[in-house]
Design a protein around this nucleic acid. Structure first.
Length: 262
DNA sequence: ATGGTCGATGTTCGA
């Protein structure tokens, strides 16, 4: 018997710049676990107190001014916290934080952006996904309850772009990135949102530039992936566009999933 | 038309 819970993932693009928005959202929605990406702050300067006042305990993997993830757990101490990859060279960009909640291993992920085709950063992105698949192989089986959520910086298929044409020549929609995501899925992971909704245009990110939000020109790059037993427990995944319309928004929207009792 | 707007940092960079 494991208790049901709600899981939010949100790339907040600086937790300090977005503090009021994030606190407002957590206060209204009270997710049991909240995975934040792009916190852009070293651990010592993370604003722990206002989250603790909302009842959250905080697990941090941040660095100065760039990238960084944080996982907030409501009313419980974070269990079996892992920062970065389990093995091999350090994840120096601070993009991974895993913990266990109600029997589920929850990975909070901020995949590398990739910057430009042919760049070192693009090669690093592909290698990062390969290492992630390797870690799953080494530590879990597809019958374990594992959830990977966060900003994957890849649009999975044409429905997840506002225009395939606009993606040409850039990152986030290349054969190499799709192969990397396929390899991850082939471990035995399911795209939970697509269990409930197969429509195009269900975006999670809208560029600050060029009036993308007003035109609804976005991408779906934030995901909740789960192994089969966890996917069976998943009863809902919502992309909440409301905070994208608030003042001083993140360019990403929160994604909230619900997992049932077992 | 290779633009544009953020955030952290420092007079650019990554996204």
């Amino acid at each position: 018997m494991a208790k049901g819970f709600s899981l939010m993932t949100w790339n907040v693009n600086s937790v300090r710049a977005r503090l009021d928005n994030v606190l407002t959202y957590l206060d209204e929605h009270e997710p049991d676990v909240a995975c934040l990406q792009e916190t852009k702050v070293e651990n010592a300067l993370f604003p722990r107190v206002p989250f603790m006042e909302l009842g959250y305990q905080v697990a941090l993997n941040g660095t100065k001014g760039y990238a960084g993830v944080a996982t907030l757990v409501k009313g419980q101490k974070p269990v079996d916290v892992q920062l970065g990859f389990a093995e091999g060279p350090e994840d120096k960009h601070k993009r991974i934080l895993a913990l266990t909640y109600e029997g589920v291993r929850i990975y909070n992920l901020y995949a590398p952006n990739g910057t430009a085709l042919g760049s070192e950063a693009f090669a690093y992105k592909l290698d990062w996904f390969a290492r992630l698949r390797g870690e799953l192989d080494a530590r879990f089986g597809p019958s374990d309850e594992v959830v990977l959520c966060g900003d994957f910086n890849i649009a999975r298929d044409a429905r997840d772009t506002w225009s395939v044409e606009s993606m040409k020549g850039g990152t986030h929609f290349t054969p190499e990135e799709h192969a990397a995501l396929d390899a991850l899925e082939n471990f035995g992971l399911h795209d939970c949102f697509r269990k409930f909704d197969d429509a195009p245009g269900r975006f999670t990110w809208f560029d600050y530039r060029g009036g993308s939000w007003e035109k609804k020109h976005g991408l779906r790059i934030d995901y909740v992936y789960a192994t089969a037993p966890a996917t069976e427990r998943c009863t809902e995944v919502v992309h909440d566009w409301e905070p994208r319309a608030w003042d001083e928004p993140s360019d990403h929207v929160p994604v909230v999933a619900r997992f049932a009792d077992t």
